[in-house]
Write a protein that binds this DNA or RNA. Sequence first.
DNA 1: AATCTTATTGCAACTGAGTTGCGTTTAGTG
DNA 2: CACTAAACGCAACTCAGTTGCAATAAGATT
Lengths: 141, 141
Amino acid sequence: MTTKSSLQPEELLQNADLRCTRGRLDILRVLLAADRPLSQDEIARRMGRNGLNKVTIYRALEAFNRAGFLHIAQVQERIRYYELAHRCRQMRCHPHFACVRCGRLYCLHDHYLPLIKDLDQGFVIHRQQIRLEGLCPDCSG
Amino acid sequence: MTTKSSLQPEELLQNADLRCTRGRLDILRVLLAADRPLSQDEIARRMGRNGLNKVTIYRALEAFNRAGFLHIAQVQERIRYYELAHRCRQMRCHPHFACVRCGRLYCLHDHYLPLIKDLDQGFVIHRQQIRLEGLCPDCSG
DNA sequence: AATCTTATTGCAACTGAGTTGCGTTTAGTG
DNA sequence: CACTAAACGCAACTCAGTTGCAATAAGATT
Ligand SMILES: [Mn+2]
Ligand SMILES: [Mn+2]
Ligand SMILES: [Zn+2]
Ligand SMILES: [Zn+2]
């Protein structure tokens, strides 16, 4: 796990020196309950009535990302997908599988590859992400 | 290498049943000469006088991608970066390193990781891409 | 070489995820 | 309760990539 701390929304925010607001707690609850990275739009829709302004959600996600407990999953699209970082190992993020047919995105929580090594002198790796694309079980039948 | 065929622009197009036009040959020459994935804008600028319309470039890249000899490199940005596929091994693309400070993108042509295996029944992998982010030699000093 | 078919191209207008500026609200401190 | 900086909402913006359609040209056919 990237964060040793608990996954309580309150603690995530406090540890990052972010204010504990209703909206940010809601965003975190949505992300904690999600089983795959979500777009801003998906997050907003899952917040339902408590809906925050689009801009506010983007700014919160940006702050979470800066704080390090949120990742932007690599998807070959214009839309970004966000997820909490707790399922990643230090620099190695869990891989994602993108289905080229139905567009679904899967988290491969239990599939890790070693970190790339022997980079040229001077490269400092912060994060390694892996993306698979192909057909998902629903679409390969 | 993904393609057994030569890297002559003409052959790439003919093998893919695409018409050999001046513009498309120019795009391919630019990509062949590049040492990293390029955006549409960068491609256009490197074509200089022979400049094609933006839309035409996008449509050509789309066709190349469908034909399989061009890849869209995974970069955590809104802009897409394109490169020829000849430096990738079957399903395993060569990794890319993105510097979080200067924004530069590096191709790691000689660094490969094994293909992820033991996916759940039904997943069919077409491509595996790896993205590293961190500081490049220029920025880590 | 002239003709035909249809892939390719250019242009203008569009789309929409993400951003910016700024005035208002509110969490957290004391 | 007052204070201050963080968080918020809204309107307007940006700009990479897309779409529709008419004009052009590759290359196959006569
Ligand atoms: Mn994931
Ligand atoms: Mn590359
Ligand atoms: Zn699928
Ligand atoms: Zn750098």
